[in-house]
Design a binder for these strands. Structure first.
Length: 491
RNA sequence: CGGGGUGUAGCGCAGUUGGCUAGCGCGCCACGUUCGGGACGUGGAGGCCGGAGGUUCGAGUCCUCUCACCCCGACCA
């Protein structure tokens, strides 16, 4: 069985950090608050990208690319949005360096190369994109515009964490334009569904779909929808957001279209995004003390074959068998790595592939050649057993599927076990100490939400979609409430 | 931006009241024995002790300045 992960905050933080570095996913970079995503980590991200990209295309979206820099005048056009991001922007003020007369061999900013207008390094692209949409849209025939962008953005956060909150991060941001409010809301909800489906099917991570309270809403949005997941240490993680932007950006950038009725109308907007934060979510959802556990659908290597041999002759015979198995597995669309390095011993390889989260390990040794078997070990349960070589590809196909399902079930059970319903302030505080989601009544005011946050650091993660209506009283103020909302301490 | 801390080999660290050729573990390289759960032995490579200035016969160690990073807080659609 996998060992217990300590969920004490500082231990968990350290465990998480060590794992990210040791499993070769990413490193702290020399640049403040940024990280280097290493090839193995990036290959997992690529799997996520591919799956998401297909889902975007299947829902009618196309990819495009917009500039990294946003002139300040554009950035500030939508006031709420600008205000929301103002405190975390990187700003380009100059465009040239020169040699420093006082320090030979050193460079200095050339004061004569000051920009007329500062450029903001995008923290999100609504401004630059809506400024562009203005020139793309004149008629209802131009709508809808369903565009997605894969890009990097910069948010100068004061405190950073690998994958979860780095100064620069990779993400995708969808930006759509619609003729009607209903259509835009439909799009917002559709993309939330896409995210939820992706999280559950690919990341094997159960999520709660909901809407944010006014306090937590995206700056410039009318409504923010989100998916919220629970990590193994009992803290919540916002895993994706989908915003209904109303006509805020259309009005800020004067984007209008002529309707069928020959009337000028403002365009309705949505935006939605997920980021490399999902890598953090993946790690904190499934991993154990032996290392990463990657769901088969996202594993760059689904099966690793470790040969066990003493002599060249043995190795040759094993290789022959292995090649036949690799072929059969590849034909089933399964990615396989044959770890034929003779510079490491089997035990070392076992440990290394476990650390990296490979879902299935196959060991082939002399005994197996004799018996016509292989030894299969599954990463999720760490079970090992001999399996007949004959028909192994079908066995593994089913096994990968089972591992994917098991990871989801396990995560769901863990989340349910960490979800508590409370009715009093005392119970609320007690539940917070245990961690997890807390379903509790709230009087619906931003002031109360803020007060609870100040007292406990817990925030309202979301108001679940299709939430059960149930009369109750607010845990803090005792005022009437019509429904429970999801509280938690969050990343 | 406040409070605290750390900078010594690729990584993790020790280095006493200033003293001799700056150490330890892991990793790395070579050779040999090993190889079904992170092997072992022997030998070896690798340091402007974060940077600048100062005190001193002598500085990793003391002083001043500076830079970087980390932690706690504030902040984080």
């Amino acid at each position: 069985m996998s060992k217990e992960i300590s969920t004490r905050a500082e231990d968990y933080s350290k465990w998480y950090n060590d794992l990210v570095v040791k499993a070769n996913l990413a490193d702290h970079s020399a640049v403040r608050g940024c990280m280097v995503i290493k090839p193995y980590g990036y290959s997992i991200w690529e799997k996520m990208q591919a799956a998401l990209d297909k889902m975007f295309k299947d829902t009618g979206h196309v990819n495009a690319y917009f500039p990294l820099f946003v002139p300040k005048s554009l950035f500030e056009a939508e006031e709420k949005n600008a205000e929301g991001f103002a405190k975390e922007c990187a700003i380009v003020t100059h465009y040239r360096l020169k040699t420093d007369p006082d320090r030979p061999g050193k460079l200095m900013v050339d004061p004569t190369a000051k920009l007329e207008e500062e450029l903001i390094v995008r923290p999100t692209s609504e401004a630059i994109i809506w400024n562009t949409y203005k020139s793309w849209i004149t008629s209802y025939r131009d709508l809808p515009i369903l565009v997605n962008q894969w890009a990097n953005v910069v948010r100068w956060e004061m405190r950073t964490r690998l994958f979860l909150r780095t100064a620069e991060f990779l993400w995708q941001e969808g930006h759509t334009a619609h003729a009607t409010k209903a259509e835009a809301i439909e799009e917002t909800e559709r993309m939330l569904e896409v995210y939820a489906h992706f999280a559950e099917e690919f990341l094997a991570m159960p999520v709660i779909k909901g809407i944010k309270t006014a306090n937590e809403r995206f700056a410039g949005a009318e409504e923010t929808y989100c998916i919220e997941a629970l990590m193994q240490d009992g803290k919540a993680l916002q895993a994706g957001t989908s915003h209904f932007l109303g006509q805020n950006f259309a009005k800020a950038f004067d984007v209008k279209y002529l309707s069928k009725e020959n009337k000028q109308e403002f365009v309705w907007a949505t935006s939605w995004g997920v980021s490399t934060r999902l890598m953090g979510a993946l790690i904190m959802s499934h991993s154990d003390d032996n290392g990463l556990v990657i769901p088969p659908k996202l594993a760059p290597i689904q099966v690793v074959i470790v040969p066990i041999f003493k002599t060249d002759e043995e190795f040759a015979r094993i290789t022959e068998k292995a090649n036949a198995i690799i072929k059969a597995l590849n034909d089933k669309g399964i990615s396989v790595k044959f770890d034929d390095r003779d510079t490491y011993r089997p035990g070392f390889k076992f440990a290394e592939h476990e650390l990296r989260g490979v879902p299935v390990r196959m060991a082939i040794g002399p005994k197996d050649l004799e018996n016509g078997t292989v030894e299969l070990a599954r990463r999720d349960t760490l079970e090992k057993k001999p399996v007949a070589m004959e028909g192994i590809e079908d066995y593994i196909t089913a096994l990968l599927d089972e591992i994917q399902k098991n990871l989801y079930t396990r995560a769901l059970e863990r989340r349910d076990a960490m979800t508590h319903s409370v009715d009093t302030w005392a119970d609320f505080e007690a539940a917070l100490d245990k961690g997890g989601f807390i379903m509790a009544h709230w009087d619906g005011t931003p002031e109360t939400e803020e007060a609870i946050k100040d007292k406990t650091k817990a925030t309202i993660r979301c108001i679940p979609l299709n939430n059960k209506q149930e009369a109750g009283t607010c845990i803090l103020t005792g005022k009437p409430s019509a429904q429970r909302v999801v509280f938690a301490r969050a990343y």
